[in-house]
Computed example of a mutant assay.
Amino acid sequence: MSASRLSPPLPDLIAQRGNSGEYPENTLPALRSALELGARHVAFDVQLTADRQPVLLNDSNLKRMAGLDRSALEMAWHQLAEISVTEPDRFQRQFNDIGVPTLAQAAMLMGTHPSVTAFIEIKRASLRVFGTDVVVRKVCEVLKPIVRQCVLVSRDLTAVHHVRQVSSCRIGWILSEYSNLSALKSEALVPDYLLCDHELLTPTNAQLWRGPWRWVIQNVSSRETAAQLAARGAKLVATTSFRKLLRELKAGAERA
């Protein structure tokens, strides 16, 4: 039997913040592009506006996305809807008139692709400002029509526990450190998914912690790294270079 046949299957790809390598992250064009490229999994971030509207944003401050030094958490939705989020430092003037999507808009788009799974990160900035119960309930309410497609994740362990209490949604915990303490907490939580940045992993070829969860390794940008992670037990990798990595994995599969 050849070595390639002995190798574990390469992980599935998650389009991190949509096709964010080519479009402003967490926007509808980024999500649509990922879906058009055939993504089976997408990931995006959620914050709350001042009037408790769940929207797709990673940073609470709009400086990076819109060139505006202002907190989205202090703005009502009707104010935020007037702002273009075109990532000017990264894309210069390539895009214009792209707005912040509401979670409801993203859910509607996901509903037209029922076989696609969405990993939705509840951001800690909103949890601190509005409280765990408010944020989790607002997000879960919007996601009810597509709950079977969703995995709600957070770095905040309390928020992940709360999702399990108030929703049938699958859950995932994003590790802030790959440590023995995190392993013990994972065993107590028993999430559906464990998520971790690949740079946080110990620099060995040791197997990832075994458990009932599936591993998602974030910020992966090469086929070589994806293959190494598959050998360690990762089932999914998230990437901001979705088109590039998808092409590399397909080319590798054709050569095998």
Score class of each variant (00 low, 15 high):
Ser2Val: 03
Arg5Met: 13
Pro11Asp: 08
Ala15Val: 00
Ala15Thr: 01
Asn19Thr: 00
Pro24Cys: 09
Glu25Asp: 10
Arg32Pro: 08
Leu37Met: 12
Val42Ile: 15
Asp45Thr: 08
Asp45Met: 05
Ala50Asn: 11
Asp51Val: 12
Arg52Asp: 12
Leu56His: 03
Ser60Asn: 07
Ser60Gly: 13
Leu68Thr: 05
Ser71Asn: 13
Ala72Phe: 01
Met75Ile: 11
Met75Pro: 04
Trp77Ile: 06
His78Pro: 06
Gln79Leu: 07
Asp97Gly: 05
Ile98His: 06
Ile98Gly: 04
Gly99Cys: 06
Gly99Asn: 09
Ala106Asp: 05
Met108Cys: 07
Met108Arg: 12
Ser126Asn: 10
Val135Leu: 13
Val136Met: 10
Ile146Tyr: 00
Ile146Val: 02
Ile146His: 00
Cys150Thr: 01
Asp156Leu: 00
Leu157Ser: 12
Ala159Cys: 14
Ala159Gln: 07
Ala159Pro: 03
Ala159Phe: 03
His161Gln: 15
Val163Pro: 08
Arg164Thr: 03
Ile171Tyr: 01
Trp173Ile: 02
Trp173Cys: 02
Tyr178Gln: 03
Tyr178Ile: 03
Leu181Glu: 15
Ala183Lys: 14
Ala183Ile: 10
Ala188His: 12
Asp197Val: 02
Asp197Ile: 04
His198Val: 14
Trp209Val: 06
Trp209Phe: 07
Val216Lys: 02
Gln218Arg: 04
Ser222Ile: 07
Ser222Lys: 04
Arg223Gln: 13
Thr225Glu: 13
Ala227Tyr: 02
Ala230Ser: 00
Ala231Met: 09
Gly233Cys: 12
Leu236Glu: 02
Val237Ile: 12
Arg243His: 15
Lys244Gln: 13
Ala253Leu: 07
